[in-house]
Amino acid sequence: MSLLSIRDLHATVGGNEILKGINLEIGPGEIHAVMGPNGSGKSTLSYVLAGREGYEVTRGTIAFKGKDLIDLAADERANEGVFLAFQYPVEVPGVVGMTFLREAYNAKLRYLGKQEIDAMEFLKFVRSRAKTLNMSDDMLKRAVNVGFSGGEKKRNEILQMAVLEPDLAILDETDSGLDIDALKLVSDGVNELRSENHSMLIITHYQRLLNYIQPDHVHVLAHGKIQRSGGKELALELEAKGYAEFSEEAA
């Protein structure tokens, strides 16, 4: 059975239809890449999946672990196991990273009807996760994303992902604004988390992230629809030919 099953998904933002019938199946442990030109609806897809207000589904279904996601609020979806690594992670002044992450972790435990974790135990857990990712947990001593460099923000997202252990992680343009060293660090982290329990949806404009994270499937999104699907070789083809084939005229 698919972990995520998207059928004929149509969505509007501010009255404009951006997604015009998306079909996508993601199985457990699979890594899918959605590529596409600017304005194709890539980020919209990630927001629609995460349940951002103002992104209205007008038709179609999103089933996650067999459950309909559409009527769930953003926090409920998160607690079901959908994680969005933001393209532009948000600053939350005054809220220390560790506190933020513990609140999030406990919210999930509560949602699942489990006992909350105490602060010391959580600290140990986070340290161990950070270690596997070869990251320092220093970032978590500062207010969430406040004064972080672009690279730090993205790494912070990956660390949060590692701690919250989602069933499905959506990486929205995680490679944007990263230099090559940061890109490698982030990719290593993602690869570290790769397992049959963790599926990923990587949203990207460029192919270069896929040099580091090998996808099982690649999809081309343009004009609100998936135009083509294939294996990782499709990404290389796009790198060579660009998106011209999927321009307005070609469609």
Partner: peptide
């Protein structure tokens, strides 16, 4: 900020 926190599982 609200969406970011909610996406991490916090209720409004």
């Amino acid at each position: 900020q609200m969406f970011y926190c909610q996406q991490r599982g916090l209720s409004p």
